[in-house]
């Protein structure tokens, strides 16, 4: 932080574009959706002012919302957050000196991120199919009975977690790779002189230095993970299936979309959106507290 600077208007000027654009393009839609959430607003509303009725309905009466939030939280842990334990070590390994062909690895791990959802749906339908899927074929080779992946509440969660990890590990790895560049080499030399092993070295130097980026990447995973829609939508067969067996793949955002565009309840869907918003803020608060307690956190 450069204390000496910042008396002038420059920093305000630099951040002005965001706030100007937000004032023009953000305020109206956000205000509009707050308004919708207070009405019994159908495809074309407003019909009737009901105050917090939609919120109360969603949180108490609605048979799907709370379990949808629970589904989302489970996938957040097994899909969106788990991958940081894969991505960070992976980034360190790929970044280490002995690995040849860094470009190849970086690219290969990143490819799932740019693969289109249509293709992902076809591929994973092939992999997870009960009777003909590659996974069950492999299990069968070990004498294990076929698992009805996409017709079983637990199977759906496993499949979705696998897809989410597969798709976003490379993206997190790239973030960590970029961050690793900013750690001064001298720091490592110092602990190497002390004779620290690789793992200790990374625990002592890499991790504390990366804490701000870990916070950042985990924040994004929380924000993205709480809004997961496309993957469960495609893998469990669209709106009609409502997330498959036991509504296991029905995430909060999926239910939001269903409520808005399939059930035509825009007021209620807006209320859902705002509840998700609050949950995300709370989770990020937790993330902030957690990373602050880690060595190197709390800058």
């Amino acid at each position: 932080m450069r204390v000496s600077r910042g008396k002038g208007r420059m920093p305000y000027l630099f951040i002005a574009p965001f706030f100007a654009l937000f004032a023009v393009f953000g305020v109206f839609p956000i205000g509009y959706s707050v308004l919708m959430s207070l009405f019994n607003w159908k495809m074309s509303g407003p019909v009737e002012f009901i105050g917090l009725g939609n919120y109360v309905n969603v949180l108490t009466v609605d048979p799907f919302f709370l379990s949808a939030v629970l589904n989302t939280l489970v996938l957040l842990l097994t899909g969106s957050l788990l991958q940081h334990f894969i991505a960070l070590p992976l980034a360190i390994v790929v970044n280490s000196r002995f690995v040849k062909g860094k470009e190849f690895f970086k690219t290969a791990y990143f490819l799932p991120y740019i693969t289109s959802t249509v293709a992902v749906a076809i591929i994973f339908a092939n992999l997870f199919d009960t009777n003909y899927g590659l996974f069950n074929w492999a299990l069968g080779a070990f004498g294990i009975e076929p698992v009805a992946w996409l017709a079983d509440p637990v199977g759906i969660k496993v499949a979705l977690s696998a897809v989410l990890n597969w798709k976003y590990v490379g993206w997190n790895m790239v973030i960590y790779l970029a961050a690793l560049q900013s750690i001064p080499a001298e720091l490592y030399e110092a602990v190497e002189m002390d004779g620290a092993g690789t793992i200790r070295k990374h625990l002592a130097i890499t991790l504390p230095h990366l804490m701000p980026v870990v916070f950042f990447a985990v924040s994004l995973s929380i924000i993205g993970g709480m809004q997961i829609f496309e993957e469960p939508f495609v893998l469990t067969g669209g709106y009609e299936n409502m997330g498959g067996e036991g509504n296991s793949g029905l995430t909060a955002a999926f239910y939001l979309m269903f409520t808005a565009f399939k059930a035509g309840r825009l007021g209620k869907a807006s209320a859902i959106a705002w509840i998700i918003f609050v949950v995300i803020l709370l989770l990020n608060r937790v993330n902030r507290l957690a990373t602050d307690r880690m060595p190197g956190g709390g800058d």
Binding site: P29, S33, L256, F277, L281
Partner: peptide, 13 residues
């Protein structure tokens, strides 16, 4: 603002 689920904003937008 990142945490605002954007799905519905498309309607007023």
């Amino acid at each position: 603002t990142l945490a605002v689920p954007g799905f519905l904003n498309i309607v007023p937008f």
